[in-house]
Design a protein around this nucleic acid. Sequence first.
DNA 1: TAGATTGTTAATCGATTAACAATC
DNA 2: TAGATTGTTAATCGATTAACAATC
Lengths: 216, 216
Amino acid sequence: MDRESKVSMTVIRRLPKYYRYLGELLNKGITRISSQELSKLTGFTASQIRQDLNNFGGFGQQGYGYNVEDLHKELGIILGLDKMYNAVIAGAGNLGQAIANYKGFEDAGVKVLSLFDKNPKMIGLKIRDIEIRDVDLLSQFIKDNDVEIGIITTPKDNAQEVADIYARSGIKGIWNFAPADLIVPDDIVVENVHLNESLFTLSYFLKNHPSFDTES
Amino acid sequence: MDRESKVSMTVIRRLPKYYRYLGELLNKGITRISSQELSKLTGFTASQIRQDLNNFGGFGQQGYGYNVEDLHKELGIILGLDKMYNAVIAGAGNLGQAIANYKGFEDAGVKVLSLFDKNPKMIGLKIRDIEIRDVDLLSQFIKDNDVEIGIITTPKDNAQEVADIYARSGIKGIWNFAPADLIVPDDIVVENVHLNESLFTLSYFLKNHPSFDTES
DNA sequence: TAGATTGTTAATCGATTAACAATC
DNA sequence: TAGATTGTTAATCGATTAACAATC
């Protein structure tokens, strides 16, 4: 049997934005919304929104629109926010510590169990209540604690090395903040946050100052 | 006269990757490269690479390929990395501090002059040699110091407020890390780093584990 | 010169927008 | 019922890939 009809990457990257705005509407106590109203909020066209959502099912109702609470919940399930994931962070420098403190993990059902570093001065320290351990213990820790997400906040030159450890230890997904393109087996998902590329893009638009926004 | 023939966003977002690999080749002492070899490195097709580069000029030579050093330099100029920009950071929490320490600023010619926060406990502290000042001084500081880039690492609820201050004070570009879509005048460039959207996307692919990579 | 590889045009593919019948 | 708005098909647009003449 075929893998569920593949949804394109461009569609998937719009889902979190729908989810965010639906959450805000929910907080405001708004119960229903049309694709046209959602279009005004998100900046995507109403047609696009209806197309996007219909990749996953008919969540709306003719003449009515979408129920905010239901759609929010459905999108949460689609995005996998109903599942719990254990995570570790390799690289306990500034960025690693900031990520360890990142509040967004709660919304995503991700729990950071430990940081890892190779600097002896850092080992044993705690970020909030998350301990920094020796990177030599990383592989065993992953196996012992059902860790599925590996975060990389090391310098660029150590990123591939860490990715290899992650791959060998059974990690399923990597959230990579190092400015490198990791080589990993096909069954491991890599999500990159390339700050350098983002900053360079900003620089480009500053130099070539346009009259339009870069959007996300 | 018309603004220089508009290059699409998708092309522009590939430029930093070209730039990065060319920098690496340069470090290795490699002097020439063909679109085909660059294709192997970047994962983009050779055809796409030639198309992309030709938006900005004919940098190559038939039968030879591209001169690594020249192309690297040209892309640096296109990306505006030859210019210097002053920047400030609003929000001196973990993320703000991590960003203040971010090494990538050097490559982009960006200098962070100060952090700003409204927490009295933080004001006066220094991150490396960068002082944290009261956010009440933000607007005047921008005007006094030719600040062109405003970085936002505040909580979501303060982001728009900071963006408004930036807009009023003459900021040209905003690097936004808050999970919000900012409303700013047309002549201000906004580059978003939405960590929540990135994490949700990773979550999606973990749940719907595919056999392909998310790439950047 | 012969071989290689660009720059560029044409063909294909995919994503967005428009339109409207179905239906709540 | 009449009005609104979806779900979905068709039309358009833009981006990617293929092809090849130009030329180093």
